[in-house]
Computed example of a mutant assay.
Amino acid sequence: MKVAIAGAGAVGRSIARELLANEHMVMLLERNADHIDVDAIPKAQWVYADACELASLEEAQLQDFDVVVAATGDDKANVVLSLLAKTEFGVRRVVARVNDPRNEWLFNESWGVDVAVSTPRMLASLVEEAVSVGDLVQLMTLRQGQANLIEVTLPADTALAGKPVRKVELPRDAALVTILRGGRVIVPQPDDPLEGGDELLFVAAVEVEDELRAAIGLAPAEPS
C-alpha cells in the first residue's frame, strides 16, 4: 500500500515508522525544512513541499497513493489537504488529524475526510474506558460519524454471565468484534460464554446504541 503523510513532525514520523515496519511504501510531505531529516527515516520518500499547494501535490503524484494522512499541527491545512486529495486526486482513503476538538465538525465527508482522529477525544475515551464498568464508551468514530467503535466492561454480577454469544440479541447494525478477557483477545464464536469483567468491543451504528444498551442489560443513557 502507498501512503502519503503530510507533516513530518513527531506524529507524522511515528505513523511513517509504523507503516514502514508493516512493509508499506511511505512518502512524507513537509513544508518546514527544519523538520526534514532523511537519515531519521531513510526508507521513506521525503518531499519538501506545501501539502496545501495543488502544484506540489501534482508534482508528488498524489493520485498514485492509496491513502493520504493529513497529520500536520494545523487543522486548516489538514482539511484543505483532505479536500484536495479526495476531489482533485481521487485518493480512496483520507485520514485526518484533529488538533483542536472544537474543529471536529469540519472533518467530515464534505471536506474529503474518511476518518478523523482527534487525539484529545481519544485520550478522554481511554480514561473513561479505564474507569467505566457497565457503560458504553465510544473509542472511535467511523464512517464520518455514522458508526462508532464502542467498549463496555461487563460488571461482575452481569446477567449475561454464562450466556453464549449467540443468545445475545444484538440490533441489526451492531456487531461484537472482540472479547478481551484477562490477557486474552478472543474472536467471539457463537457458543463462547460471556463472563463478568469481560471487555466487549462493538462496532455499531449511532442510531442503534440505545438498543445495544438494552441487549447487554445496561441502563438507558442519561439525557445530555
Rank of each mutant, 00 (worst) to 15 (best):
179 I>K: 04
185 V>W: 02
36 I>N: 10
198 D>F: 04
136 L>Y: 06
74 D>A: 08
221 A>S: 10
46 W>F: 04
203 V>C: 14
142 L>I: 05
177 V>M: 07
109 E>R: 13
83 L>G: 14
101 P>G: 07
36 I>Y: 05
12 G>E: 11
119 T>A: 15
161 A>H: 12
61 Q>R: 15
208 V>G: 13
110 S>K: 11
118 S>C: 11
181 R>Y: 01
151 E>F: 01
98 V>S: 07
62 L>K: 07
135 D>N: 11
39 D>T: 11
180 L>Y: 10
198 D>Y: 02
82 S>C: 09
212 L>D: 11
59 E>K: 14
101 P>S: 11
35 H>D: 12
22 N>L: 13
58 E>S: 12
51 A>R: 07
211 E>W: 01
178 T>M: 11
40 A>H: 00
35 H>C: 12
5 I>W: 01
197 G>N: 06
216 I>R: 03
21 A>F: 00
50 D>A: 04
165 V>A: 10
106 L>Q: 06
124 A>K: 06
170 L>V: 08
170 L>C: 09
192 D>K: 00
51 A>W: 00
186 I>M: 08
65 F>C: 12
105 W>T: 10
109 E>M: 09
224 S>Q: 13
202 F>S: 13
99 N>D: 05
19 L>W: 00
209 E>V: 03
1 M>A: 15
74 D>C: 10
57 L>N: 14
61 Q>H: 15
195 E>N: 06
23 E>H: 13
205 A>N: 06
5 I>E: 14
96 A>W: 05
82 S>A: 14
132 S>P: 07
102 R>D: 15
155 P>I: 00
83 L>K: 14
112 G>I: 04
74 D>G: 04
111 W>I: 10
176 L>W: 02
41 I>R: 08
171 P>Q: 08
45 Q>L: 15
139 L>S: 02
158 T>C: 09
85 A>C: 09
88 E>A: 11
4 A>W: 06
215 A>N: 02
206 V>F: 09
159 A>W: 04
209 E>S: 11
50 D>F: 06
216 I>E: 10
